[in-house]
């Protein structure tokens, strides 16, 4: 099971990273969402996998580790706030700059090398 779980985390990370490397804002946001899934699962997994662990005191002998859960719970909510902020920033950038490229302008073709910025 651990192998499968780790593969899922790795795959989600790879997908998220690939999308984050795209040039337009929306795929980047989607990639970031994907990456936060991976991160949340990663932190969660640091408490080890537990199929039938209890979280409520006094219900069983075998408890799941509550600390990573508490960390991930807030991470999910904060992740939402971050995604939302990014999305709105993308909308605002598109409205102000007229393009949804992450650099705020379309990249110039290769042959015209740009001067170093002052």
């Amino acid at each position: 099971m651990e192998t499968l779980f780790a593969s899922c985390i790795g795959f989600l990370t790879a997908c998220g990273v690939f999308l984050m490397l795209r040039g337009r804002t929306f795929p980047v946001v989607v990639g970031l969402t994907m990456l936060s899934y991976a991160v949340n699962l990663f932190i969660f997994a640091s408490g080890r996998l537990n199929l039938r662990g209890a979280v409520i005191l006094g219900t069983a002998e075998n408890y799941a580790d509550p600390l990573p859960q508490a960390l991930v719970l807030t991470a999910i909510v904060i992740g939402f706030a971050m995604t939302a902020f990014l999305v709105i920033l993308a909308i605002r950038a598109r409205a102000d700059l007229g393009t949804d490229h992450v650099d705020g302008k379309l990249p110039t073709p290769k042959q015209a090398k740009r001067e170093p910025r002052r």
């Binding site: 651990e2 790879a14 990273v17």
Partner: peptide
């Protein structure tokens, strides 16, 4: 790049 990051993160997690 993405695969390498994925492999590294997945391995650490495992």
């Amino acid at each position: 790049l993405a695969s390498m990051v994925g492999v590294v993160i997945g391995s650490i997690s495992y």
